[in-house]
Amino acid sequence: MQINYSSKTLKSNPIWYKLKQNKMTWVGIIILALIVLFSVIVPLFSPFDPNKIDLVNKFQPPSSQHWFGTDEVGRDIFTRILYGARLSLGVGILIIVIAAAIGIVIGTISGYIGGIVDTIIMRFVDMILAFPNLILAMALAAVLGPNLQNAMIAIAIVKIPVYIRLARGEAMLLKEKLFVKSAETFGINKGLIIIKHIIPNAISPVIIQATLDVGDTILLIATLGFLGLGAQPPTPEWGAMISIGWTYLLTYWWYPVFPGLFLFLSSGALNLIGDGIRDVLDPKSAR
């Protein structure tokens, strides 16, 4: 059913319209915005130093002074969570941006060029994907040495193949599209076709996947932190906090629960945003 719209009306922005329709995306955006806002503002005004040891006040339950209580050396958990937010969110996003960028370049080349290049790349990808994410990241982080930077490299390596696969699949579909075929008839070289046609058209599923993956990556960093392979104490990283707090769950429940809650909220929020972006970018969901 085709309806003729004049070109004028199409100037109004459909992306905005679709975003407005999607309430859950807004829930995600608001949660994430609040976490980011707090993590920027609160440390400026907080009377507490995230790393200062105050043994007199250890294991204080939540109160008007220490909103989320204090930990085993008397640090304010609320302050540490918000410092941790800068770290966890920042690192999570950075890892994914790097992994997605590398993945889309390799993936589109692999998918578009095909042949032997594709075979070799895909063998590698299959190899990496054969291991469970976490195990491989753990092994890599352990080999590289336990610190945050190495944990980031390990997670990025684990994440890249997903994007290669995704971008390759898109590239293989796009290769058959008439606009790519017609670019081939002009006689312009393949690299240019990849840059001009394949990457721009393959990018939206990658962005969607990336948004969904940030939450997962934060969890991975946290898990590595939890296992002692990521950020080292006393860095206020969520995973590390949960990992230590875990042992106190029964006696001082607030210690692991609040960092866990923030982890849950931010990865949930990112998933909602990812879903929203998918709806916005997917032309088939157009109303």
Binding site: K177, L178, F179, K181, S182, A183, K196, H197, P200, N201
Partner: peptide, 13 residues
């Protein structure tokens, strides 16, 4: 010049 101008033009250009 191809049949279907919808698919022969890159939507992102």
């Amino acid at each position: 010049v191809f049949q279907d101008p919808q698919s022969s033009l890159d939507p992102r250009m």
